[in-house]
Design a protein around this nucleic acid. Sequence first.
DNA 1: TTATCTAATCGTATATTTGCGATATAAGAT
DNA 2: ATCTTATATCGCAAATATACGATTAGATAA
Lengths: 111, 111
Amino acid sequence: MAFNKKEEFTQKEQDLAAFAKAISHPARIAILKTLAQRNECICGELVEILPLAQSTVSQHLKELKSAGLIDGTIDGPRSCYCINWKAFEKFNSEFNSLFNNLKLKNEKACC
Amino acid sequence: MAFNKKEEFTQKEQDLAAFAKAISHPARIAILKTLAQRNECICGELVEILPLAQSTVSQHLKELKSAGLIDGTIDGPRSCYCINWKAFEKFNSEFNSLFNNLKLKNEKACC
DNA sequence: TTATCTAATCGTATATTTGCGATATAAGAT
DNA sequence: ATCTTATATCGCAAATATACGATTAGATAA
């Protein structure tokens, strides 16, 4: 691959893609689902729930955090995570404005 | 990496992740956006719009098609693509049932 | 202090993705 | 039949992602 061409696209396209990339692994979906149900969750609980090693879970949490989908705070020797609902709202509204709004106009059959 | 552990998760988690993976690149977002606006589109038009080589665009189209997000038919020497809105509906409803419904109950502040 | 417990990071192996040029295929035009 | 034209596929190189064990760092307990 000569070069990464991602910067050649619009910021909205990159943002949507980045959010989608963050939720593009079942382990991260499972993490978010758990956080959504419990409102907050300790890292160790997630390690017990998921069929993955502690280091791998930690890596997935790091990705979700750096993508802005979750927040985390250190609580003594452990780490507490929760969902950043604002990021989900932003994704939802951009996804809708891009696809769901257009859908209403264009649902006629095609190829 | 010893093994790919994706099959260890639920089917819903895998389906959501697969859809997200399909839209996790700005080029594929741009393709879908164009198809949503025009209802259908010839491959060559997409190649002109995107800052990518023809072979790369073709590859992205293949991924979108095998993920079920678009349909394509051969029209003489060219290929016509359009969005499969059903796939978007399914993603939307699963995404909402997983996150947006829970959000209403759990929006209190946390970590 | 030393020991323990929790979580993050490092190092590494392997798998997958991204991208392009070159080639193949298939339909239409000459 | 040959020449375009449009698209798909192949083959390769480089970049990223996935996963784990080992190690490190930080807080509490003994």
